[in-house]
Amino acid sequence: MRETYGKTLVELGRENQDIVVLDADLSRSTMTKIFAREFPERFFDCGIAEQNMVSIAAGLAASGKLPFASTFAVFAPGRCFDQIRMSIAQPGLNVKLVTSHGGISVGEDGTSHHSIEDLALIGSLPGFTVIVPADAIETAQAVRMAAASYGPFYIRLCRPKVPPVYTESYRFNLGKAVTMRQGRDVTVIAIGLMVAAALEAAKNLGREGIDCRVLNMSTLKPIDEAAITQAAAETGAIITAEEHLEHGGLGSIVAQVLARHQPVPMEFVAIKDTYARSGKPAELLQRHGLTAKDIEQGVRSAIARK
């Protein structure tokens, strides 16, 4: 995902002279260094100063530039929420925040580097479009979509390489859920690396005779209310799966939609009200209930309540 982001930025940079890229001393990790090598005059390393980076990006956008600003997801919005709020969101400026290292699959760096609140924070800001791509192919498309659409965007990437869930022919459709797998008994709505886990869970559940629909809700905001409502009406139970706290992320947003339009039994595969510590990504995902097995368990619970 990160490598794809850097390469996509270079392609966009060749096409559009107004594209500028900012980073906060993490360009080797976010992969904005690939852009920096190609276009040093259009790359601004702001040092370890995320607040400054965000407001500089806003000033560039206010002057007609198309800034992409990157750091770890835990630092933006975490370290600079007020700057994102007043410099970018309130005026609706054309800044693209693309953060890497979302969730706990960051791994060994531990709590300080795990981003489990970012979607709640950024999703609370009026006017922000929020995207969590499921693989590298979708990442490239989402970054291109952000460049082509005016307004504030937040795109959250993760650290580990994730298995592809799409082929090159895939075309990202902003604000539309993608039906990854049809099913009649239950629907799993997932984002990020949980999409691959959801597909694995659906396959396993098929052996038990459970016909599981899987939606990739890569555009978290604005959410595809129609797809959620339709899935609830047709399958009668919903499970959300995300690498984020249970509060304020995908699960909360989907629950809100269901409460309004189509209440059905629902289960949440997400991090419970706690922080993770150091560990290998796979170990942490297992410890915090974010595996295919956990999704399968959630599906059984939800179906039992139908």
Binding site: F44, G59, A62, S63, D82
Partner: peptide, 14 residues
């Protein structure tokens, strides 16, 4: 505290 940073962005764009 945000204006100086914002101004830097505007100046860099110029």
């Amino acid at each position: 505290g945000q204006g100086l940073s914002f101004a830097i962005g505007v100046a860099l764009a110029g």
